[in-house]
Simulated assay, not measured.
Amino acid sequence: MTKILHVAIVDDWEASRPFGEYEVSTRAVPFVDAGFVHATTADRLPEVLERVYGSLQLPLVLIVLDVEELHAAGLQVTWAPTPRVIAPLPTAGPAITAELPLERDAAGTWQVPAALAELLG
């Protein structure tokens, strides 16, 4: 199973639940403007957290997505050069493998959740 990751602002993710889909591409960019939802791989997550979310003071959640389940649900994933989901994300169902809260260390740097390694095998 191929897993990709999406970093979401907690309030955006939670506000999307009643509608069944999440329509945010990345920080401050709606899906309708970008045409896709940004994702990343585990090895690039620290860079994304620092570059895109480093200055953000809002709570974040890491959404772990199963690429095969996204495809089974009819959602296309491209790799150009990082993963992109070419549709809004479902907020529930088998494509969502986990939702992990992101926290900062004492220096204020976003940390990769320890549980991620176990989920990725």
Rank of each mutant, 00 (worst) to 15 (best):
E68H: 13
T91A: 06
L5R: 02
T97V: 15
G108L: 03
A73C: 10
L119H: 03
Q57G: 15
A39G: 11
P101L: 07
L65P: 08
V24N: 02
A42N: 08
E47A: 14
K3N: 12
E99N: 03
V29F: 07
A34C: 08
G20Q: 06
T109D: 07
P18Q: 10
A115Q: 11
L49N: 03
F19Q: 12
E99P: 00
Q57F: 07
R17F: 00
E14Y: 01
P59M: 05
Q57C: 11
T91K: 02
Q57H: 13
E103K: 08
I96K: 05
A42T: 08
P101F: 04
L89M: 10
I9M: 08
A34W: 04
P90H: 03
E103Y: 00
I63N: 07
P83E: 05
H38Y: 10
E68Q: 15
L70Q: 01
D66W: 10
P46L: 14
R51P: 00
H38T: 09
R44S: 14
V7Q: 01
A80R: 12
G121T: 05
H38C: 15
V32G: 05
L119I: 07
L116V: 06
A28V: 08
V48Q: 13
L119D: 02
A8K: 02
G74K: 03
A42Y: 05
E50P: 01
L120D: 03
A8C: 14
A34K: 07
M1F: 03
A42L: 09
L45A: 12
A28K: 08
V10Q: 12
T26R: 04
A92G: 05
D66E: 15
